[in-house]
Amino acid sequence: MWNILELANLVCFIVVFGVRFAWMAKSSSSNVQFPFAPEYPPNLDTIQSLFNTMVVANSVNTILTFLKALKYVRLNSQLGVLTRTLALCQQSIVGVLALFVLVVTSYAVAGWALWGVNMEEYCTLGFAMSSSLQLLVGNANYDDMRQNNRILATMYFWSFLVLGLFLLLNFIIAILSDSFAKISGRAFTQTMEELLLRYYQNMRAFLRPDNVRRIFKGISSGNSEPKLIRSLIRQLEERLRLAGWQ
């Protein structure tokens, strides 16, 4: 998944530079004078289209760049809760999300067919999809729906709420909650990256000068080395626990 995210980020980055250079070249060669001549300059539409494309690509690239930060927070057991939770429940949640998309799409098509002529919210399929999602968060024009089709509006409204909100969305929340509970309870196997990082932290703390001096001091005073090592390990674990390695 992270490789796909890196690839998408790189592609968006290249697209942004390409569109920006095209926009700059087109703007430099347009020779548009203000105020405009009596006729509208035809080059402005192309320049505006390139600029809007650059803005959209920059927006997508910004989101992808910040999402890449989740790749590095996995190294911390507290900050990596989100990525571990999603990784643990990905197989279960994909099926529920597919059902959710199917239900929303089917009700959007039905709303488009029922109220597409009389209501602006359902005049196109895209508007119908947006209105269906807004209905799940309580933003619904129920009075206009009933005014145009009293019987089917009631059936449409309540059946969609029961399927989309009370069942499917709560299924998604339940799956995420169960995975989060397992992650919080440490009911998962640590990845190789985490094990290597923890081993590096342990070795770095073990080889600190004060710890080495303490070992040699204990040996010279006659204390047994295994006892000293066990005591040192307990101290290291306490330090790591205070530092966040629980």
Rank of each mutant, 00 (worst) to 15 (best):
V101E: 12
Q91T: 02
N148Q: 13
E120Q: 10
I151C: 10
Y122A: 07
T105I: 03
V109C: 06
V137T: 12
Y142R: 13
S106H: 03
A113K: 14
M145K: 10
D144F: 02
L152D: 08
G111C: 06
S92Q: 11
I93F: 13
V104W: 06
N139A: 14
S131T: 01
S106E: 02
N141G: 04
E121K: 11
A140Y: 01
S92Y: 01
I93N: 11
W115F: 11
Q134E: 15
Q91R: 08
Q91W: 02
L99I: 01
V94C: 04
F127C: 09
Q147C: 06
T124K: 13
V103A: 15
T124I: 05
L102G: 08
N139E: 12
G95L: 08
Q91I: 01
Y107M: 09
V101A: 12
F127W: 01
Y107P: 03
V109G: 03
E120K: 14
N118S: 15
D143E: 14
L133F: 10
S132C: 15
V109M: 13
Y142N: 09
L135R: 11
L125A: 08
F127K: 15
G126I: 00
A98W: 02
L152W: 05
G95S: 13
R150S: 13
L135F: 07
S130A: 11
D143Y: 06
T105V: 08
T105Y: 07
A110Q: 05
V101L: 10
V101T: 06
M145A: 14
Q147K: 14
I151F: 09
N141D: 15
A110C: 03
F127R: 15
A108N: 02
W112P: 00
M145N: 05
M119C: 10
N141V: 01
V104G: 06
V96E: 10
N141A: 11
T124A: 09
R150V: 04
S92L: 02
M119F: 04
N148S: 13
T124R: 10
L125N: 05
L102M: 12
Y142P: 00
N118A: 11
G126N: 11
G138N: 07
V117T: 12
V104K: 12
N141I: 00
S131M: 02
V96C: 08
I151V: 11
M119A: 07
A98M: 08
R146C: 15
M129K: 05
L97H: 05
L99Y: 05
V96K: 10
V104I: 12
F127L: 13
L125G: 07
S130N: 12
V94I: 10
V117K: 15
L136N: 04
E121G: 02
V96P: 06
W112T: 00
G111R: 06
S131G: 03
G111S: 05
N118Q: 14
G126M: 03
D143M: 09
E121L: 04
C123N: 08
L133A: 14
T124P: 07
R150A: 15
A98N: 12
L97N: 06
V117S: 13
T124F: 09
V103E: 13
V137C: 07
D144N: 15
A128C: 07
F127Y: 05
